[in-house]
Each structure stands twice: as C-alpha cells, then as structure tokens.
Write a protein that binds this DNA or RNA. Structure first.
Lengths: 215, 215
DNA sequence: GTCTATAATAGGATAGAC
DNA sequence: GTCTATCCTATTATAGAC
C-alpha cells in the first residue's frame, strides 16, 4: 500500500518552516508577522501555534534546520584527509556551495548574530543551533592550528582568522542589493559564486600583493 | 551675552538621534518602537513627529549622520599621498578606529545592507547616505586599481576585494556576543582592536601562508 | 489539526490645546 | 515645541468548536 515517498510527504511543520525561512531572512524576526507566514503556508494564524509554541520557537526551528544543513558538508571538508591548507580551501568551497544554493542562509546566519537581543536563548532549538556553530568553529580552529604547527601557515590569530573567513563568505552572500550593485551582477550568479571562491582562496594563498615568481 | 557653547546647545533633534541610534543598532528598524525612543529622550511619542515625519525618516537621519562621521577620516586616508598599499592600510586603520570608537556603527552599517526592504529609498537622508557609501567605495576602488596598475598589487577583483575588506572590518565589529566569545574577550577592548588592524593588514600583505624569508 | 472568534497589547501616526 | 487624547491597524497568543 505504498506510502507516499518521504520527499512528497511534507507535514505541515516543514511547510511552515519553508514559508517562514525566506520571510525571516528578508525581514528579520521582528519584521516578520505570523499572519504573513500563515498566509503563505495556506493555514490560519492560529494553526501555527499548534506546531510551534511561539514565534521565537518557530524562528529557532528555522535556524536549527539551516545549521543542520550546513554542518555536514563543512565538517566533512574540514575533517577529511589532506594538508591543512587544502582542507581549509575545500571547506570554503563547501560553505560557499551551501550558501550559494540557499540564498536565505547567509542572511539568516548574519542576522542571528545580532538578533540575540530578541531571543532568550533557552529554547532547545537555539541551543542545538549554537552547538552546531561551536562545532564548526572548533573544527575550523583545529585545522588552522594544525597548519601553523606543521609550518605551512603563518601564526595568525585563529579567532581573527575565523572572523575574516566568516566575513568573506557569509557576509559577502548576505550583502544583498549592495553586493549586487558592487559586483555589477547578481551575487548568486554562478560565475560570481565561482569567482568568490577563487578570490577568497587566492587571498589566503598570496595576500593582496603581487606574488613572487616562485610559489 | 555669551550664548552657550555649541557643544552644550544640543537641540532636541540631536538628542532624539542619540537616543535612537543605539536602539536601531541593537534591535533593528522594526524591532525598535518609537515609544522606547521617546522614553529615552524624555519626550512624548508625539513630539518625535515634530522633528521627523516618520519612523523611516528618523532611521534614515541616524544612518546619514553616522555615514557623515565615517566619511571624512576614510576618504582622507585613501586620498593622501603615498603608495597604494600604504594608503589602503591607513584607510583600514582609520575605518577601524571609527568603528571601534562607535560600537553602534558597525551594526547599523551591516543592518542597513539588508534592511532595504523596509525602507523606500526615496528620502533625501537615504540618498545622501547612499552617496557617501558610493564615494567611499569608489575611492577604495581607485586605490586598488592604482596598486594593480603600479604592479604592487595582484590583479584581484576590485569589487570582491572591497567586499572582503568590509567583511573584515564592519562584520567583525558587528558580530556582538559571538565575536566576544570567539575572541575570549570583548571585541572592542583596545588590545583586540589593535590586533584586528594588524591581522587584516598582515593578511593583505602575506596571505595565510608562512612568509618567505625575504619581504 | 484546523478553524472562527477574541483577547490584550503595542505599533505608527494625527488633531488640537497650550 | 511639547503635551494629552485618540485613531486605526497589526501584533502575539488563547479559547473552544469542529
């Protein structure tokens, strides 16, 4: 009696998350009303409360879901075999691939960093999301440390380098119209995504100065 | 009949901007209520409307004021005499100094990039703010081009490099609690601000790889 | 699980007295 | 230039029928 395939059996909970995600990304937590979410998902406002206790929990569930989606490819790249610099570069590729494939992600990630004010931080979904971020940052830190220990990387500050990498990837793809106008074409155009990876990796390898003949 | 010195003669308009600035920085446009602004400034909600036609105009005035404050030192550093790389580095120092001295600025700048949704973009204050941003980005672009033409900089994409620099400075200081925890001490602690400048400049000079004996 | 109805509050903005 | 009073709408959330 063949149940529908899991890919089609989409419970209301997931539909609500799908509807809320782009709204939170564009308008932020307080800029998004549950009425708008309900309308998009084709339910009444009240029905949302059957699936989520509060707006804050809905928001936290959106964040937890996207972080789970980011976690796997990035940790895989960082944890793979190979030299530290190569693993770092593959992690950048992996992260940029996920961000580019899901334009809501970079905005949600950036917003979440300074929207803590509005959230208590005690919901299980929030704690799971924070745990994922911690895990990724720690894995990244380990690769950087390893590279310094092996003598292939400069002894740059690990936390500052992490910040620079987040800025170079998450901020870039979150920059919206400003970024589009700066580049002269959409941030998420395939060629610009490829270019972003190359530019970031080249900066890590060479800095901004003209490379010497040997490398 | 000695009028009060200009530094003390602070008309209501400026007091309102002072009160609104940190609120918009922390809570964003839609997260900030005019009641809260009014309370902080010691006026009634209605009085705000005597000075600003709408909440959007108040927000735009806050943004215009901070951008005017950022413009002078950064353009001065970019436009000074000297080699392109040195001018770029002095501009980074100047920008970081302004951001570090005004913790509300980085958050407001970052938020403004993806809060365009909520603002029409037709207010004169918004257009002045956009003009300042354009001016700074263009001056930065000229320095980078000049460096490439002079053969001291790699032929990196100018817009992508601009994005990386914004991420390395504005994003870093906007990262709030996340940044504090990552660094293990406050983002705005004097030592960490100095360190940020050094880390960014070192990355531009050397990349992440161990520098060769000559430089 | 979904709905209608409703509560209770806070939102931005205006009118008009002083 | 500031106030009180008010308007209207939107907000999150709950109660209770189906």
């Amino acid at each position: 009696m063949a149940a529908e395939p899991a890919s089609l059996r989409q419970p209301s909970r997931d539909k609500i998350l799908d509807a809320a995600e782009p709204l939170f990304a564009r308008q932020g937590f307080s800029g998004t009303g549950l009425a708008e979410v309900a309308e998009r998902v084709g339910l009444s406002k009240s029905s949302l409360f059957h699936h989520f206790h509060s707006k804050a929990q809905l928001y936290a569930a959106v964040m937890a879901r996207i972080l789970e989606h980011i976690q796997a490819p990035v940790l895989a790249a960082l944890g793979a075999a190979g030299e530290p610099l190569a693993r770092l570069e593959r992690a950048i590729d992996a992260l940029v691939d996920v961000l580019a494939a899901n334009p809501t992600y970079p905005r949600l990630l950036l917003r979440s960093l300074f929207e803590d004010d509005e959230l208590a931080g005690d919901l299980p979904e929030e704690q799971e999301a924070n745990a994922v971020i911690r895990r990724i940052v720690e894995a990244l830190g380990r690769v950087l440390h390893e590279g310094v220990a092996a003598g292939v990387l400069r002894a740059a500050s690990v936390p500052h380098t992490v910040q620079t990498l987040i800025g170079a990837t998450v901020y870039h793809f979150a920059s919206g119209e400003f970024g589009d106008e700066l580049l002269g074409r959409p941030l998420f155009a395939a060629a610009e995504v490829r270019r972003r990876k190359d530019e970031v990796k080249a900066l890590l390898r060479h800095g901004l100065k003209r490379p010497r003949r040997t490398d």
